[in-house]
């Protein structure tokens, strides 16, 4: 269980998150939806331990970021808006580099498996910088999942993916859910995300609310929530 308790985060005088409280349970896919600049990426950064909350607390099971430190980061996988890949290294070298940082055993087998899941086995030795955005996105996702994290944070994971790749990603997220992984995903892609999200959160001007239940598609319910709260 990951719980965010009354978390605020300020950038100077600007408040990016305002008293956000939410929980995500084991095996749950939580969707964060909201306009640009609403605070979704800040919330992902706080959950990833990259940013410290200005006030409030984030708990990872029984641990906090300050208490667990390096070991905690080993259980978190992050796919950022920027893809965290070295363009001058090949797909295989990128995965192997991060695998070494995470101290993974049996690295060759894991890298080969990750390349297969990213459907990049035939381009494993090509420079990541020569890939299209969609291919890099697939590689970056497998980089984030290489160490089998318990908490996966995805910021706009569907960006640049073609229809086929988006479906593969949804299947990948479902398999993570079955394994008990907590997935928190910030996206604007309602139609694609609806197929996999268990619970949707609306983030607007730094505040977070559950997206209203009831009839209609996820997009319709999100708009209704935004209107009611706005």
């Amino acid at each position: 269980m990951v719980s965010v308790d009354d978390v605020s985060r300020n950038y100077g005088r600007r408040r990016a998150l305002a008293r956000v409280t939410l929980q995500a349970a084991r095996g749950e896919v939580l969707g964060l939806f909201g306009p640009n600049g609403a605070g979704k990426s800040t919330l992902i950064s706080v959950l990833s331990t990259l940013l410290r909350p200005s006030s409030g607390r984030v708990r990872y099971g029984t641990h906090t970021a300050d208490g667990a430190g390096d070991a905690l980061r080993g259980h978190i996988g992050v796919l950022g808006h920027d893809l965290f890949l070295y363009g001058d290294l090949s797909a295989r070298e990128n995965l192997a580099f991060f695998g070494r940082l995470y101290g993974l055993d049996d690295l060759d087998a894991r890298v080969t498996d990750a390349l297969r899941l990213a459907r990049l086995s035939d381009r494993a030795d090509d420079r990541a910088g020569s890939f299209s955005r969609g291919l890099r996105q697939r590689l970056a996702l497998e980089r984030a999942l290489l160490h089998q994290p318990r908490l996966v944070l995805l910021d706009e994971p569907f960006t640049g993916l073609d229809d086929d790749s988006a479906l593969v990603l949804i299947e990948r997220l479902r398999s993570l859910r079955e394994r008990g992984t907590i997935v928190v995903m910030a996206t604007h892609d309602f139609d694609t995300a609806e197929a996999v999200v268990d619970r949707a959160i609306c983030v607007d001007r730094g505040r977070a609310w559950p997206v209203a239940a009831g009839a209609g598609t996820l997009r319709e319910r999100y708009r209704r929530t935004l209107k009611e709260r706005g």
């Binding site: 978190i76 920027d82 893809l83 070295y86």
Partner: peptide
Amino acid sequence: ERERQADTLKALLLSPVE
């Protein structure tokens, strides 16, 4: 600058290393 281009410094900071 190389670490900034794809925000890879952030990836280093996110890894479980000192």
